[in-house]
Structure formats: C-alpha cells, structure tokens
Nucleic acid binder design. Sequence first.
RNA 1: GCCCUCGUAGCUCAGUCGGAUAGAGCGACCGCCUCCUAAGCGGUAGGCCACAGGUUCGAUUCCUGUCGAGGGCGCCA
Length: 547
Amino acid sequence: MDVRDILIESVRDALADLGVEPPPSTVQMERPANPEYGDWSTNVALASAKAAGRNPRELGMALADALNAAPPPHVTAVEVAGPGFVNFRLSDSWLHDVLIDVVAAGTDSWARHDVGAGETVMVEFVSANPTGPLHAGHGRGACFGDSVARLYERCGHEVTREFYINDRGTQMQLYSGSLAARAAGTDVPEGGYRGRYIEDWAAEMPTDADPFEWGYQRALASQRAVLEALDIHFDSWFSERSMIASGAIDVTMADLRDADAVYEADGAVWLRSSDHGDDKDRVLVKSDGEFTYLMPDVAYHRDKFSRADRLVNVWGADHHGYVARMHAAMRALGHEASELEVAITQMVSLQRGGEEVRLSKRTGEMVELAEVVDEVGADAVRFTYLLFSVDSQQTFDLDLVASQVNENPVFYVQYAHARIHSIVRRAAEAGLVREPLDRVDLSHLCHDRELAVLRALHELPDTVLRACRERAPHLVTTWVRDLASSFHGFYHDCRVLGDDVDEGMTQARLWFVEAARVGLVVALDLLGVGAPDEMWRDDVPAGETEA
RNA sequence: GCCCUCGUAGCUCAGUCGGAUAGAGCGACCGCCUCCUAAGCGGUAGGCCACAGGUUCGAUUCCUGUCGAGGGCGCCA
C-alpha cells in the first residue's frame, strides 16, 4: 500500500475519533517543497476547520496528538506548523518500500494504471493533406499525438492511432494540377503548389502516370516514411474518399435530417450548429451542390464514434475555430461533447540561424520534417517537441538544436541510462550478482542523493496519470529530466562498485540502480525516446577518456 | 467586434486541480576527473510571476478588466 494512502487513512480515522463533523470529503496529502516541513503534509485542518466549526490550529494540534499517540507505519513524528498544516516526518524506510515496489513492478508495470480499463480511445493526429511532405510544424502534432496515445495505453485504455487522409477535394486538385504542370513544363495553376518538392516529384513521375493517383501515393509514402523514422506507427489510415463509396456521407446527412439538425436556405444545406453552442449555423452542402469541408468531417467523426468510446483529436491552433462546430455536429448526432476531446497544439515557429522560416506549402517555403530528423536525430526531435507544453508556442531553432547536440536535454537524460548500464556491465564483469531483494539491507540507502532519486521514483505513477488526464506529455519530460538530475548527483557522490565499498552497500545500490533504470525506461518510452546502453561523444572513442 | 492560447531570471521554458522560502537549462562568473563514461557534479550572480481590481485564512495559480504576443472567426480546405 502506498504510503500516501496509509497516511490519509490514518488521518481519516483520527478525525473520526476526534468527532470531526462532517468528515472531509477528500484529504490532501502532499510532499512539501521545504524539508523543514517534514516528508508529507496535509492541509486537512485548514480545509475542514470552518465546516467543523473549530479553530484550524487547534484542530491540527488535536489531530497531531492523536496521530503521535499511535503513529502510522514509517511515521516518526507529527507536528503542526503555520496556520494549521499537519506535517509528518517519516523514517527513510518509506522510500525503501518505494524501491521494493518499483523493482517488483519493473518496466512493464511500474506507473501503469487501469483507470481506462474497458474504454477504447481513438487518437487521431497528423492527418496532413496528402499534397506534400510533412514539415517541421507537423512534427509537434505527430510527437505529441503519439505520446498522448502511449499515455492512454499506460493508463489502461485500448488505443487506436488513426491518420485521416483528405484524399479528395480542392487541395488535391490543385496539387495534382501543379504536378502535371511541372511535368509538362507549363505554369502551375492559380493557387497551386510551388514547393521545390513539386519539381522533384514531377521529375520522378512516369509520363503515363495519373498525376492525381501517383501524386497521392507519392505524398503518402513521403509522410509515412518520416513518421516511421520517428517511430510513429498508425493503426489505420482512413480515406475521405472511402466515405463517398461507402455511402457514409449520405447516411450521416440522413441522420442529421432525422434529428432535425439541418435546414435549407439560399440553395444550401445548413447545420443548426448554433443550437448546440456554436456561434452560427454552418453550411454542409453549398448551393452548387458540392460539400463544404465540414460535411465529410462530420461523417468521419460519426464513423469514428462507431469504432471507439472516446475520441481524441490533435489539431493545430489554426483549427481551433472548428472545435465548436464539430462538437455541435456530434451533439446533433446524439453524442456528448465530452466524448470528443480536441487537443490544440500551438504553432511552431522555425528559425534557422535566428531567422524565421515561414511554413507554407503553397509558397513552397518549408522545412521538411525529414530534414530535421536527419540533422538532429529522431530522439532529439521527439524530446525537443515534448519539452514544453503544447499550450505555448514553440520556437524550434534548427541550427541551435543541431549544433548544441552536447547540451541537448535528451542526451542528459539518456546519459543517465547509459551510466546505469555501465555500472551493471562492470558489476557483471566483476562476477557480481544481485542477491534476492529480501536478503539485501536497504537501510544502507540513506544518502541525500539516494533519497532524492527514490522520492522522484515515487512520483512517476501520479505524473503519468496526470499527464494522461491533462494530455500533457511534457509533464513526463519534466519528470524524467528531474530523475536524471537526481541520478547524476548520486553517480557523482556515491559509488556502487569498488574495493572500498561495503559489500552490503554494493548490493543495496545495485538494486537502487535497477529502480532508477525502471523509471528512466518507463518515462522515455512514454515519450517515444530510446534508452541507449552506451553513449560516446564523437570526439572521444569508446574506452578512452578525454585528453 | 467576438473566441482560443500565451505573458514567470538576460534568453528558452517548467511550476499554477489555491498553500508555508517561485525552479531548471542556456548564457556570465568561480570551482571539481589517480575513482562505475566530465554528454557529469557543486557554487555565485540574476525575479514587484505583464498591470489593476476581486474571491479566500492564504493567489504566480481562481474570477473580472487593461495592455502585449500569436492563432481563429467564409456557400476556402
């Protein structure tokens, strides 16, 4: 049982014994930033004083007295501080229990949850038009979406990753028209695509190929390749065109009519989206008989709901205005808005040498995601995209990330893992075998550096849960940087192996190092970043030290 | 005009489901390798948490307003 739950239980029991009415609905138990305030702290006396009609400080004292009279496991002292915080001091043994939990669970189970059991989630992300390569701006949504999917999986959901392909419509026409024009040496059509890749691909295109189909496959192949390079794999690629053939669009329209959610005006068919929270009604079928982009999109989301309990969409900030209308459409079809969650990623601005690079497929100025991956590597790309909250705009300076390889935070974290592996390897070379955990005396682990690592490990399960709930993978990035920092501190100050290290200490630390490894591996996997066993700088060959 | 996100150290950003002394990296300065990889560790300097009100025992965190940055508000996709 987690120490936090133990403490919360004991607080509840003590409050009941003290006759506190009404009992608090929740008891907050957190680890204070300042060590002066103990290892764990609760504000329950402050929070429930008013309802109980008692003075917070006095209530806190009574609570502390009761708890001190019969201390819960690990607790050495309970004190009251400030306006009525009740602070617990624990022996290091609570952290040794954390180590035991971590290594018992291992990389498969530590920080795994079952809150999502029985719920299927479909994460739809990237969904770029098949009219060109993915650019660096798509990278953020790609890495974010995949990591969110990993978080849902870790929390027990059954997850499908889906890529929606807009394989019909105006943009496709312009794209294939541009390819054909380039191939023929004529001017690209008005509003067409002018990127360099158009020239390259037009040159590649066989003369007898259909520019539409060939161009479609070419773009798709390009996008798929770079996603694979980033270790992002979709379970399904959903074609917009397929919904024409399957009649899904017609069925959707019929459903909307049955729900009295559409009407005709000015020769067009309108969705009554303003009945469901949108600013205004939206056109589904134009007066010329063509669909707007919205109609197939609604049909698509309707289809997704037939395949999953919960939908998560990852959209760029330039699409946030469509959230309300899509929610409205889904409500009209009988779904709750809460079943469709739209995560908005703010824009990525790219710089090269401090100069802004504009991203636009139409003007042709772009930086391909594939170039970025080539320059800095997949791990650095993923880690960099997941460094910050997607609620903030991000500036990605290609030169900086490429040139600062040695200062990149991803290497800092991966290096911690490499150091662990190094210790394990040396131990094996020395013929050292870890004894069964129950025969190892963990009380050796009392160094501040060791305790800091164990405290961090205790937080991972909560961090994962919160990162999933808030769809915020950067919380995991922040956590793993913190763990790496604690571990490097340990590595610097504490030795695992050596003639001058007590045997019992070596045994305890071998298990300790295993626990740290579990934390690193779990977190890096959630980010989709590798955990290498060795890392050698280019200028320092393996086995040598720097001059 | 309306909607969304953001405004925290020189720079890039964490922290914000209300808590007790606001953190990291980079940059600057000063230290640490006879020792499991120095892609490492430690220290110094650097903040009216944009601004003004409000709620609260308590606000960087919640609410309102102002200012600033970016993105949206089509019978375009």
